[in-house]
Design a protein around this nucleic acid. Structure first.
Lengths: 349, 349
DNA sequence: ACTCTGAATGTAAGCGCTTACATCCGATGA
DNA sequence: TCATCGGATGTAAGCGCTTACATTCAGAGT
């Protein structure tokens, strides 16, 4: 008979309690849980009954410690406050679950130090691989990942030069293409509402895309009005109001993402401005919201689900010890809807 | 000198590696990390340097095992796919962080079995307290929580009769109040779009609220058209289309939540129906989306942030071993916006 | 000179699990 | 009948940490 613990009734049951109750050794219980086929029918039945009776749940930490694997991946996203990352993450998680891997998610609030902490927390919790958003992060974060030999993958950005695996799209090129279309419609005075570019390579790349398109069209960069704001609908609305207060005001406002664009469109309605009659608005990401806005938002469609699915595949391969996968470049195409049209008066100033 | 491990260069560094490098015992390193004031200046400096050099991150599982505490809470929400739970969760997390507690979040996809699994997973990972949404769940889930003595709190629902702590509002009463207003405006033929009521006490309570208001107004329950659908914008749209295809069609459609209402409003626009001129639409939850829809959605405002904050406080108290807290009842008030108006023709049939 | 104190540190016993290895035992074949 | 074999089970050594307790040592008090 196994020695019993101080006061089993006041503590969560352990493997040992289950073993005692089932009249077997802890090894048998463990096998019963991890490789049932290696245990006799009768023992299995007794163990199963004991597990149910005691409401036993194995201690993950102890299990990971002993088995030296956790079957857990982690993801650090900038925010959970809006749906931008939700779809991709869901696909990511689904793909992992198929392989028996659990996903732990943390959010950094777009703060590099906080992201570093979250990475550390996930690593400490045994994350065997990490999904990260974008390339910008503290050197310490990268150093930690290298030192701990944790495979990681950068999503939401594709960068030919970055020395690490990524699965994403070319933010700069996509935004440049969209801007070129806007200019092609006749818009000359453009406004930009961008998220904070510091520590956010996607926002930076998108902004550069706007500049590049303007340069290519021979437009004066001084004709570009820029608002840099935090990441929320209300911020987009306020920024839009400021842009509309300038003279002459922009005829098109390019937003760094759909959330900011939602704010812009809402503000336009509040101000009695017709979109796109008086002013055009574009977004980026094509989240669910984009199709629901009035007018529906012209934006850049990001293949969220595919990105999540492929990222999962790549990280699983990396964990398995394969060679670092090639960078994955996905297409981000313009999604035409109603919010973009020719400038009022048909073009030019 | 501490014996060195097989191949320290191929494995993540452990406390022992840090100790060896700093020339102290593992106990000193541990103290240095957990109670720096109990270690001499010089030792602390050496340890800190070693930690940085090695890129050390302590193993959470081992630490929890030894210290028998994790400072981790868990939350299981039905879905991350939309913003319904995001705001409350953010407030919950912020309040916990102030107390040094980390939050782990899992989602159940509105499936009771999956929720049970997620609860088990969080418990196994050392969650010391759990936030759950609504009262409906498998008996096994409750049994597990009781057996493991994990404090938990039901949010998003207040129920005078349920034998467990909760922090929420009266879904039934709120929906009844809203429905009464709709009826008061003259609507007689009502449609309801509800989420799956099986295993979802909030959806059930809200639906009962509608029935109760109709009964109170002496309306024939047969005048109520009901669509029960999964939880997505597209489902709301499809359900709305079906309701509009009935004859005579409802003059007001009450949606069980804002996501379904967003689908309804979008569908109305697609069908060329004016809201609220031709048909009124209402929601429930008052998520950010509600104010952005065209027309803006009349809905029931849920005090997301307060609920999250108070829930954190209650769970922290429960962990500390206090008496079970009283049920917390919050107010959910009608938020008037544009989508609700009198029926076409001014009322009656 | 001696003891006493307390701060700094080390020693070592686990925390709850997995797993290599040892043991046991009934069935099998010669 | 007995050695052999293999499936079922048990034994016990850690996994990386924390912490009670033991040890050391410098300085204070007598």
């Amino acid at each position: 008979m196994a020695p019993s613990r101080p006061d089993p009734d006041r503590m969560a049951p352990t493997l040992r309690d289950v073993a005692a109750r089932a009249g077997v050794s802890t090894a048998t219980v463990s096998r019963c849980l991890n490789a049932p086929e290696r245990v006799s029918e009768s023992a299995r039945a007794r163990v199963t009954a004991a597990v149910v009776d005691l409401g036993y749940a194995s201690n993950f930490g102890a299990r990971a410690l002993a088995a030296r694997r956790t079957n857990t991946f982690g993801a650090v996203i900038p925010t959970m406050d809006n749906a931008i990352f939700a779809r991709a993450l869901q696909a990511f998680q689904d793909a992992l679950r198929d392989e028996g891997v659990t996903l732990l998610v943390a959010s950094s609030s777009y703060k590099p130090e906080q992201e570093e902490d979250q990475i550390r927390a996930l690593v400490a919790r045994g994350a065997e691989a990490l999904l990260l958003i974008g390339h910008d992060r503290t050197p310490a974060a990268y150093a930690l990942l290298d030192r701990q030999r944790i495979p990681y993958l950068v999503a939401w950005a594709w960068d030919a030069d970055a020395p690490r695996p990524c699965a994403g799209f070319d933010n700069r090129a996509a935004m440049q293409a969209l801007t070129a279309e806007v200019i092609g419609l006749g818009h000359r005075r453009l406004g930009v509402i961008t998220a904070d570019r510091q520590g956010n390579d996607r926002a930076r790349a998108r902004f550069e895309g706007v500049e590049a398109a303007m340069a290519a069209a021979g437009l004066d960069p001084a004709a570009l009005r820029v608002e840099e704001v935090p990441y929320a609908i209300a911020d987009g609305a306020a920024a839009f109001a400021r842009l509309m207060a300038t003279h002459p005001r922009p005829t098109a406002v390019l937003c760094g993402n759909d959330v900011l664009a939602a704010g812009a469109i809402t503000q336009a309605r509040a101000d009695g401005l017709d979109v796109p009659g008086d002013v055009s608005v574009t977004g980026f990401d094509d989240i669910e919201l984009a199709a629901i806005l009035t007018p529906a938002l012209t934006t850049v469609h990001v293949p969220h689900r595919e990105m999540g699915r492929r990222a999962a595949r790549m990280l699983l391969d990396m964990r398995a010890g394969g060679p670092p996968p090639p960078k994955l470049r996905l297409e981000a195409r313009i999604k035409w809807r109603a919010s973009l049209g020719p400038p009022p008066g048909g073009g030019d100033t």
